[in-house]
Design a protein around this nucleic acid. Structure first.
Lengths: 215, 215
DNA sequence: CATAAACCTGTCCAAATGGTCAAGAAATGA
DNA sequence: TCATTTCTTGACCATTTGGACAGGTTTATG
């Protein structure tokens, strides 16, 4: 048998990464405790060190596992698409990701706030080209008259900021709205609101077609 | 002499708070080191403990000093104003704050990401009422036909998210834009862009009156 | 079944860390 | 001037933390 999914390696590796994401997301690299990660994973600390030789290695692994599911969206064939549909899809995907996997966003945010010391290469080699590419697509829409003049890069930042806010600032959002948890209804409302304001802001739709009050 | 501004107390107190903000902003409560704070302040560690009995006390003090300059804007007489001017001013003020004092925003963000354990009372007693009050003002604009239907609370979240993004994600923004630092020109561009998209998104202005490319 | 490889974990340790304390230096005030 | 309060700091300590390691168990393999 070539590979077995229930091999200890595979099983524990995943458990540890998940535990590490939780711990690092809320405490950062320095604040996180190896013992706390081991506890979350339900393993003795020494076992964690068997798979990851030290804290930084584990941190990097947790970070990388998050970066994989980061910008899957905004499909590469977007150039052929029309801006309205593409941006709307992108926004809705990012909102859903923020609500469904806030941990990933929090871990990323913590790293960036601290100055991105372990992600500088990823920013340079992956994210910067990604933004450049998508900005060019947006620019091509503008040039071909499919959408009014706007700064593509700032537009991408705005979409990132607005959507990730619901993941990173979850505690604040819930407190202020007097809620206990997020639910599917709220995903819909935030998606509708965000998509509508931004698309209308870009002049791609008329404002206020189907807004709804939420509280 | 009743009080002397150059008294050691006054002078060192400030130095320590500032150093603490820097350290806590990037490391969080657990990750921050008292020694590092002392070094930043240029004082021996024992001296820091003379003014603040322990780490949590200092953290709380640093956090409070940040919260004071938080939502000064959106002046209380806003009801009398028109929505366009009021929101525009609010957005511009928040953008300027993000660019000029990113540390404050980062400290706040770190605390919220970690679940706001030391700010839950402030969220409940100060920020929730603040949002409620401002949301009511926005709602009154909507009711009186001064602006189209929108969700006021989500609108406030969007403004917070978009503006604070430039403080919290400074490292990412700079990397992706290939810049070394922020400058006054960028404050203007981000202010213009953000204000324009959001106001147009709300139907308060026509999209794209004076956009500019930035890169 | 035997050998080897992969995996597990209790125990230990050096370094780092938050915090104390006592002895002294500066400022203050009568 | 002298006493009292405020401030400063080197030295120290108890605890926590990341991590090493040796001896063990389980699993794969021929």
């Amino acid at each position: 048998m070539a590979k077995n999914a229930t091999k200890p390696r595979t099983k524990n590796y995943g458990k540890i990464i998940k535990a590490a994401q939780e711990e690092f997301a809320s405490k950062g690299l320095n604040g996180a405790r190896m013992q706390a990660i081991a506890d979350r994973a339900g393993l003795p600390k020494a076992n964690v060190h068997y798979y990851f030789k030290d804290k930084v290695t584990l941190y990097t692994a947790a970070l990388n596992s998050v970066m994989e599911t980061w910008n899957v969206f905004f499909g590469s064939s977007a150039e052929a698409q029309e801006p309205k549909k593409t941006l709307d899809q992108f926004i809705r995907n990012k909102v859903r990701l923020a609500f469904e996997d806030p941990l990933a966003s929090k871990l990323f945010a913590t790293e960036i706030i601290q100055g991105a010391p372990h992600l500088s290469e990823h920013l340079e080699k992956v994210m910067r080209p990604w933004v450049k590419e998508k900005a060019q697509i947006i620019q091509s829409w503008i040039d071909s008259g499919k959408m009014p003049q706007t700064d593509p890069v700032l537009l991408i930042f705005m979409i990132w900021a607005t959507t990730q806010h619901y993941a990173d600032f979850q505690a604040q959002v819930l407190r202020i709205m007097g809620r206990e948890d997020y639910d599917e209804e709220m995903v819909r409302q935030v998606s509708d609101f965000t998509s509508e304001i931004i698309l209308a802001g870009c002049g791609l739709i008329q404002p206020n077609l189907n807004s709804r009050k939420i509280s």
